[in-house]
Design a protein around this nucleic acid. Structure first.
Lengths: 329, 329
DNA sequence: TTGAAAGCGCTAACAG
DNA sequence: CTGTTAGCGCTTTCAA
């Protein structure tokens, strides 16, 4: 299958393998004449480099590993999309894994990545804790994960939650409901709740946590949101409700139930999502959402691979007004 | 960074590097005693293999390249999801690219994959034609692409379209509309249209093609579907309409417009999508859809990597009844 | 401006 | 059951 190597084109063009290597890496060191000879041979034999051999000897790899919890959330697929797109310019290639599973399996995945000599690891899954990550003998860039002595890129979740609360207040909501699929106090996304609660002060509120919402495309999730909505409607009959959801997919799920119940959006119920992902635009009523600026996150990731300095970056959050909140006068 | 190699643990355990190598590849050839010695050393030094070196010498790689047109379609992300999941068992790792772009860029991507010595290439993009693919010096598995002398895995699109048409007839639709983002007669998905048209015979029909629907998450797409629906409603006022969309995302887009116009689904309009992807379940009225059996496709892909024999596989299509068509008595 | 030699980390003969 | 030797395809000294 693969046959033509540097040796072959060395012979063809009457120079040494070293010179051919230099043609690719330091062409400026070669005479015009040799360059042309080599170029001709490369074309004729349709030679293409062997990156593995090169990585082996130089120790410099452009392979990057990415581990997602799953791919059923727009935030993840959009981030992947941006990583691939922006990584292309710097010649990075991404090995993608998902890890729904055990700690043991995640460590095996990472080991496999190491065995492929990846330049770094982009981590979105929540299975490993900080100490375990710090033990890894490679650059790790975590996204929306609890901190530690590695590179972290997080959204300004606090401001995100605060912006949501403020908007709902401005629009005259009387009860404030946060829907989330689970939280830990050390997760960056926990700050959304903090910011939200702070902004609504002592107004009536409900914080609804349900792990069934983790995979919003499941039937379980659908049922969970249904009974949640029923509960809230019963409890706060006649009041204007302001919902703040931990992601757009959940917000969309909620909107769907509201439509089925013929509740007027945004007159009787307002909804604010998180991520400003395609689904939020794609919903029946495009969903007002907090943007995480995924493309900026991706850019910082790529940059961090080149210059790895463990610390946290916070990417600003902002409110994107759409049709599930009142439009400003 | 990376230091401990086979040599180190050979010294540590007092055997030759070869023996250590055998410990990983043919442990059955070693005595119990040596195995234990080596195991101890491996643990102590926290050794992990170097796959690149191994690929270099054996010529056998478990890296697989995947090229998608983009990642904004559930069919793509779900396929990727399944590939990663099912590939894990056979120890495959996937390098993922998207290629919105030029033929030149796509060939560069493929060249890069070759330079990483991938075992094979999974191709979903439509940029290269069959001859160009055949020229590639590696196993190529194409999915939903025109054929050629390589491995193809396609859905039984003809039956898929036919099933959709038959259902709409059964439900009493009077006008039959197919919505598509574009087609070529040699694409497998063209057969959906053929099967659909055949099943509805001489009944009133419209075949609507609009490239703006290619990325259904764009604003353009949204506007396109809106004016399309307006046109149809004007033209066939009072008739029951049966829509067959080329994918679930478009079907969802269409449903959204129907809801806004307060058209009764499935009484006045029926909608059938394609892919049976998460969005179809996630829509306000879960969308009746043709399943491509993505997980089966993924399984065949994985299988084909091990036993590469150029030919076409056709994966059966079937109709999944949900809420945008009448439920059977 | 070019080449010879050594070696990246590993495994496949072949031998014992 | 284990070790010796050679070499995967490339780059990096060092020397000319």
């Amino acid at each position: 299958m693969r046959k033509v190597k540097i040796q072959d084109i060395a012979e063809k063009s009457g120079v040494s393998p070293t010179t051919v290597s230099r043609y690719f890496n330091r062409p400026d060191l070669l005479s015009q004449e040799t360059q042309e000879k080599i170029q001709a041979a490369v074309k004729e034999l349709n030679y293409s480099q062997d990156n593995l051999a090169r990585i082996l000897v130089t120790g410099k790899s452009n392979l990057v590993g990415v581990i997602f919890p799953h791919l059923h959330l727009s935030f993840y697929t959009e981030l992947l999309n941006q990583l691939i797109k922006q990584g292309k310019e710097k010649d990075y290639s991404f090995i993608v894994y998902t890890s729904h599973d055990s700690k043991k399996e995640e460590l095996e995945l990472i080991d496999k990545l190491i065995s492929y000599r990846v330049k770094g690891l982009i981590l979105l899954s929540h299975i490993l804790n900080s100490e375990e990550i710090e033990k890894l003998d490679m650059p790790v860039i975590s996204i929306e994960r609890p901190g530690g002595n590695f590179r972290q890129i997080n959204n300004d979740n606090f401001t995100g939650g605060k912006l949501a609360g403020e908007q709902l207040i401005r629009d005259g909501c009387e009860v404030f409901i946060h829907i989330n699929n689970g939280y830990h106090e050390d997760w960056p996304s926990f700050k959304r709740i903090v910011g939200f609660e702070l902004s609504i002060k002592d107004r009536p509120k409900e914080i609804c946590i349900d792990e069934k919402l983790t995979d919003p495309y499941s039937e379980m999730a659908s049922e969970a949101i249904q009974s949640l909505l029923n509960h809230i409607l019963r409890e706060y009959n006649g009041k204007k409700l302001g919902f703040f959801c931990s992601n757009d997919d959940i917000a969309n799920l909620l909107q769907r139930e509201c439509i089925k119940k013929r509740i007027a959006i945004p007159q009787d119920i307002e909804i604010i999502g998180y991520d400003n992902s395609p689904v939020s635009d794609y919903a029946v009523y495009p969903i007002t959402s907090i943007t995480q600026n995924i493309s900026l996150m991706a850019r910082i990731v790529i940059e961090s691979l080149d210059h790895y300095i463990p610390h946290e970056s916070v990417v600003p959050a902002s409110l994107i007004m759409k049709n599930t909140t009142l439009s400003p006068e």
